[in-house]
Design a protein around this nucleic acid. Structure first.
Lengths: 233, 233
DNA sequence: TAGATTGTTAATCGATTAACAATC
DNA sequence: TAGATTGTTAATCGATTAACAATC
């Protein structure tokens, strides 16, 4: 009796990962429209702004419910609220930062992050010389205190900004402390239980996408050095 | 006569974007294997390390040539060299950084980036109080000097670490200076000519993927607050 | 009402996987 | 040789797009 239709549960069983990342883009774009005092938008407009077809926008949203008005479109404020609720940023998530090096400090300083529903409430590092220091109002703690900190602040998400050499171990400690969502900035593949959600940002990989595009696509100005042979034929 | 087979040109016409990003993951993993003194690997091993099927690994590589030995596998060093050449990181790319705030400074300090084939050779900002200051050996220049700097260092890639409010204009100046590849850290959609390659990293969006996973997937421990109704039925 | 735009079903397209002959 | 693993073709699967009745 709870099987066949169950219209009310946005169970998200079968929501493809790509849909979720587009959802974030819709949200970002809708918030921009709101700032520009736009009241109503449409799948066509949203699609044009983001480079998607109108059909895709409607299909994506249809995964989660009926948010539009036929003949009218979508009210920005309503859709923002709906998408935030779907994504789960209708409330703020406390986050712990692991690794307070170059990047970690930048993330700590990055206020305007809490606007988007995330708030760094604690920071840990493995370098004892940093313990007790305060950065942007957050005291740097030994990594061993992770379980306590997680309990204390009801943390559910972590950001790893540790060096590659430490990242796997740090990730395991994070999971051991009861956290199931990790944003990983270290350039390695984390091996963790499947129930842990991991997002990854690798600067080198992003740049490599550009390098590939430069060397393989676009020969409008033929400035590129001449093609080498493949290694073996 | 150049149409049908043309085995030698890895033209990359039809290389899906997803293949290119997996290529970077293969490279990263192969380099790690090399560091661990592994000489030979296989599509099965590579796949297991990264969570792909063996068929996918082989198919991805087959887009670009024949790099393996039937019955043997792939020699790590050879495959590393081949993949670097495909990606275009068999040489170093000079990069200009636009925006020297929190994040920009972290990127400047991020040595070990040049190891991967990218070298920040210049930095610009729009804040005059920063002009002339030197950070990690790079002098911060007015954004107006972009065209000169690009010429001077033969720059082909740019990183935007400017605030959202400035990013579109900065991007346009970068393109006007003759750059066709941009890594954008600002949380906006850049509107640029289609021949410009853009990669984007939006911290909030990455975190939102985790937030979605936390609120919609995985109810192993039923700690999550009870489900709200969708906005309208 | 006429015009616009939704949500959804069916058609198309592309990407992943399975299977296997060829090769070492 | 027997065992392993590639590169590739064919089968499967999933995601995107087109089309349209329903709705405002």
């Amino acid at each position: 009796m709870s099987k066949s239709k169950d219209k009310n549960k946005p169970t998200a069983d079968a929501v493809p990962k790509a849909v979720v990342s587009r959802l974030s883009l819709y949200l970002r774009e809708l918030q921009r429209l709101q700032r520009d005092a736009v009241v109503t938008t449409s799948s066509t407009q949203l699609g044009q702004l983001l480079g998607f077809t109108d059909a895709q926008v409607r299909k994506d949203l249809a995964h989660f419910g009926h948010f539009g008005y036929p003949g009218v479109g979508y009210r920005c404020s309503e859709l923002v609220a709906a998408v935030k609720q779907i994504i789960g940023t209708d409330h703020t998530w406390p986050v712990v930062l692991a690794g307070v090096g170059n990047l970690g400090r930048a993330l700590l300083g990055h206020r305007g992050f809490s606007h988007q529903g995330f708030d760094i409430v604690a920071a840990v590092d493995s370098d004892p010389s940093k313990f007790g220091k305060t950065l942007d109002g957050i005291e740097i703690q030994p990594i061993a205190r992770l379980p306590e900190l997680v309990m204390q602040h009801d943390v559910r998400l972590a950001i790893i900004a540790a060096p590659a050499s430490a990242a796997q171990e740090v990730a395991e400690r994070i999971v051991a402390a009861g956290i199931y969502g990790i944003l990983n900035f270290a350039p390695i593949t984390l091996h963790l239980p499947p129930e842990v959600a991991v997002s990854s940002v690798d600067l080198a990989i992003e740049m490599e996408q550009l390098s590939f595009a430069m060397t393989n696509l676009r020969p409008p100005s033929e400035l590129l050095p001449e093609e080498e042979e493949p290694l073996r034929e």
